[in-house]
Amino acid sequence: MPSETISREEFSVLVDRAGLKLDEAQFEAMRGSYVHIRALTDLLRVPRSRKTEGAHVFHAPMPSADKQSASADTSISKE
């Protein structure tokens, strides 16, 4: 179920945090639509275990071919 519509004070905090300067009509229109935004974000929170992986897994960039061969050369020269 969508969350309740946000109060003026609470919504004002969000707008200030975003660094926006809305006129009264924009402010009220967006405050009225906020329930739909919360309806979207509520749907994202599905039950997950603590071990559930994030969607995107960070991979460290692989060394470039040039650096790999340079590293290999260094290793060989040390031998």
């Binding site: 707008v15 967006m30 639509s33 906020y34 935004i37 974000t41 749907l43 994202l44 994030g54 969607a55």
Partner: peptide, 22 residues
């Protein structure tokens, strides 16, 4: 109207959407 919602989301909202995406 269509850009403003993005300014009202939190970082956690975006990451939760990415998790849901996966």
């Amino acid at each position: 109207e269509r850009f403003l919602p993005g300014f009202l989301l939190t970082a956690a909202d975006y990451v939760q959407a990415s998790r849901r995406r996966g």
